[in-house]
Each structure stands twice: as structure tokens, then as C-alpha cells.
């Protein structure tokens, strides 16, 4: 039922799953989401907690290590499948959008430009994001 309710992932969910392709704990996940999305997406600890709980419930991630109250997580096969499915869907969205926007004769924005527009990154972070890309 829950899986059906989230046939598509929200942006923060997508980035959290992406960040868990490597074993990470809470604070690292929040940092990784910020870095991956070029500062566009920020996931607060409360929101992240609920998201991780749901992913665990649906079997998208698994708990790998516990150090006191610090828990590390890693994506599962089911989570990877979901991520790939979502990627295909987004790819399709991108292709469709690209086709229409190119017909309009306008250039397409780069991820760095998107970060600048959203105003979530400072100059240092924008240059770091541009380098990573």
C-alpha cells in the first residue's frame, strides 16, 4: 500500500536515496543531499527522520551500523530498483521538456545556474559545485 502511495519519489526522497548508495549516517546524509542537489534541496533532521523511517518500513534501505544513537544506513536492492525507476521517469520528463524548450529556441539552464537562482548556495559552494560537475 505504502509503495503504491509513493510510485514516484519526491525530490528530497530521491536525493536521500541517492545519498544512501554509500553507507552514511544522519548528518552525512543531510550534507550529501545538499551537495548532490547543489544546495537546491535541504532536508532537515526531522523530515529526514520520518523519511528514513518510511524507507526502512518499505525496505528501500537497511540499517548497517549503530554507534550509540548514531545509525548508518545503506540502500537495498528494492531501493535501487525504485531509484532506477524514478531515474527513468525523470529522464523521460527531461527529454520531453528538452524537446519543447528547444523548440522555443532558448538555452537550457545548467545545475549551477539553478543553484544560483534558488539562492541557497554562497559563492564558495557554487564554485565547488561547478568543479564537482
Amino acid at each position: 500500500m505504502a509503495r503504491e502511495a509513493f510510485q514516484t519519489l519526491s525530490e528530497p526522497m530521491y536525493y536521500v536515496l541517492l545519498s544512501l548508495t554509500e553507507e552514511r549516517y544522519g548528518a552525512q546524509i543531510m550534507e550529501q543531499v545538499k551537495a548532490l542537489s547543489h544546495g537546491r534541496i535541504a532536508v532537515g533532521p526531522g523530515t529526514l527522520y520520518m523519511m528514513l523511517s518510511r524507507f526502512l518500513e518499505w525496505g528501500f534501505i537497511t540499517e548497517t551500523a549503530v554507534f550509540g544513537r548514531r545509525k548508518s544506513y545503506l540502500i537495498t536492492k528494492a531501493g535501487e530498483d525504485m531509484l532506477r525507476e524514478e531515474y527513468r521517469r525523470l529522464q523521460q520528463l527531461l527529454e520531453d521538456g528538452k524537446m519543447v524548450l528547444q523548440q522555443l529556441g532558448q538555452g537550457l539552464p545548467t545545475p549551477t545556474e539553478i543553484g544560483e537562482r534558488s539562492g541557497m548556495l554562497n559563492e564558495k559552494e557554487i564554485s565547488a559545485a561547478a568543479q564537482s560537475v
Binding site: G26, A27, M30, P45, G46, R69
Partner: peptide, 8 residues
Amino acid sequence: YIALCQQA
């Protein structure tokens, strides 16, 4: 939940 908020 509190531990996660403290990490942040």
C-alpha cells in the same frame, strides 16, 4: 529523533 537533530 533527538540524536539526529543533535547531529544537525
